[in-house]
Design a protein around this nucleic acid. Structure first.
Lengths: 256, 256
DNA sequence: TACCATCTGTGCGCTACCGTACATAATTTG
DNA sequence: CAAATTATGTACGGTAGCGCACAGATGGTA
């Protein structure tokens, strides 16, 4: 469609210092991620870590009875494959492309090598893992306490934040799989939002017309995750990085 | 009550090699954790990492309206305070003692120093973090798809696994707060289990009478988490540790 | 022993969501 | 352009869990 994406479009890659970038970028491989592609399948070995530039990937759990639920959403603010550096070799849940686009990927061995240097990439990845844990936790809370209406708002907002435009391409059926609810439930929630003039929805194309209102209609879960993610990944200089000995360079991770 | 607990009762501490233990153990401080004590409160700074020996602590999220939901359960298989080494300084959710007992704790600075050596403790902590993520994810799934009956079973099993006896001390009110459901819902579920002869329950004392049956009544969520946790934390030698360069000693983390 | 706080059990109307079935609309395909 | 496919809308009975109100039961304590 448009120009070839640049690695720096991924916030984590962009936050690395020039020398680390110089070391890693030659090994980055640009891959196109078509809608509904699977980056990882539960139980299968993981060969790469993915850094989305303009794609969105969701991690989802597949239950024994075939039902699925999205555990988290990952876009250009993050990466996929944390299991690899947390000490696992195979995927625990599957990762499915929710919005087509591109990602850069790095082979497992390269990630580990860089990881073992105990440098910026390690810190960044851990920090992102923290943000991810927050998101997963909040999903758990949301699943317990909030209505489908609210969860749809949360989902739309989380997805929108990871795109540069105000529309999403996903059917109600697809969203229902992500939220782990009935498709009809999504239909009803979507109708309400349309009647309120917040979105328009037609055959898989959601346009957000009134984002502020969408935020007020969402539960607290969206803003909690958003705030924490922003703090962890953008305002790094204000926060004490874990390294406080000279075994790690004290370079802070600059905002892109 | 009984003898003073030993650090080795915590599986993570026990898995460290003698030299790492020699370096860390002098800084361990034994603390008693009375029922309902708070190790961390949301938003407050975190000063220590805790390694439970015979206590159980649950991480829980407190919602704006005051309702709460447990996100995970931690006992002697794990540790509390992962946020500290993931790059945060203050707690995101609170950690509440669910079963009184003891824990060893290590000051923040000491953890970070050890962490920066990039040795065993780092690997262990990451591995545990992975197990924790699995547990949190599964909580999200369970909250969406399973009945209170099933969730009560899951909760009892998760708690039992972290104790050396077959009874738990917690009121139905307390469990309802953990599961994020009505107390009456827990009462009804508990009655069913009693009628089936699986547990006895009286004024805050749950005795598990038929554990195998309890497992069959639970949803898949329990066994998924259990299995994954066991793999990650016990059968380490079979698995490739992340370190595959010589910057890390290749010592595997022996089973205790 | 009598009282009181705490814990557990029960009942009832209400609502959100589910399962199912089917209807209509928009797009693709032959 | 007709037919098939896909996406969305609607309807309806069933039910799990909720909020609320209150009734026993149990165990500590004055």
């Amino acid at each position: 469609m448009s120009a070839k994406p640049h690695p720096q479009q991924n916030h984590l890659l962009a936050a690395l210092s020039p020398d680390v970038q110089g070391r890693l970028f030659p090994y980055l491989e640009l891959v196109h991620l078509p809608l509904r592609a699977l980056l990882y399948e539960s139980g299968h070995p993981m060969r790469h870590v993915y850094f989305p530039t303009d794609s969105i990937v969701s991690m989802q759990y597949l239950m024994e009875n075939g039902a699925s639920t999205a555990i988290s959403v990952v876009g250009n603010e993050g990466l996929l494959g944390i299991t690899l550096f947390m000490g696992g070799e195979s995927a625990l849940n599957r990762s499915l492309v929710q919005s087509a686009g591109y990602a850069y990927r790095l082979p497992r061995a390269r990630v580990k090598e860089e990881f073992n240097r105990h440098g910026q990439l390690l810190l960044l990845m851990l920090r992102y893992t923290q943000a991810l844990i927050t998101q997963i936790s909040q999903t758990a809370v949301c699943n317990r306490h909030h209505s489908i209406d609210q969860q749809l708002c949360r989902w739309l907002l989380l997805s929108m934040d990871r795109l540069s435009h105000n529309h999403l391409t996903m059917t109600q059926e697809f969203i229902s799989n992500m939220l782990g609810v009935r498709r009809e439930g999504v239909t009803e929630a979507a109708i309400k939002l349309q009647k309120l003039g917040v979105i328009s929805y037609s055959r898989g194309l959601v346009k957000v017309l009134d984002r502020p209102k969408l935020e007020t209609l969402s539960c607290e879960c969206y803003s909690v995750v958003k705030k924490e993610t922003d703090i962890l990944l953008h305002y790094l200089p204000q926060r004490q990085v874990i390294a406080n000995t000279d075994s790690i360079s004290t370079a802070t991770l600059g905002t892109p």
